[in-house]
Amino acid sequence: MSTATTAPAGIRIKGIYAHLDCLLAGIEQLKSEGIRGFEVLSPLPRHEIIDAVYEGRPSPVRWWTMIGGMTGINVGFLLTSLTAIQWPMINPGGKPVVALPPYAVIMFECTILFGALFTALGAIVHTGLPGWWLDSALKDPRCNDDKFGIVFLRANVQDEARITEVLRASGAVEVTTGDDTIYEVPNA
């Protein structure tokens, strides 16, 4: 997702595919020609596409999960222990003031809760959601339906011909340039 060829002012190029293998071929071809800085649209998460685009780089969301979980377990421990220490004489059922076995349950629950919430937060941060401000070129309902897309938001003008060629060659059913149409889903 590097943007080596992106110039300050670029041109939009969008190729719509009806077939998954054509899309994958297009991506591979673009990559082999050294053209980067495109976004792929897909109505479903296909691992082939993700792998093709991200080349196996894992999502950093996992760090969020880990940090969340570790925060949670500590919050769980501190919450239970510090509140108990405040009332040292109030020790129900013969248990010591800080009794780890019962507190482990709270710690576990806090781990899960914080892990999940941090994961959600991480996902939001990394995906850039909410995506209401996304470029209209990316808002193509066809690509939520049954089409795939490769979108250049700011492609180098001198690359235009090459990119268009690659897209067409790989089997895009439609290639537009500089287009900012708002698409409606067919048969809505």
Binding site: W87, N91, P92
Partner: peptide, 15 residues
């Protein structure tokens, strides 16, 4: 080691 004390969620009963 009372059964009742452990289970009170708000510490209304204790030893």
């Amino acid at each position: 080691h009372a059964g009742c004390e452990n289970v009170c969620p708000v510490l209304a009963t204790y030893h």
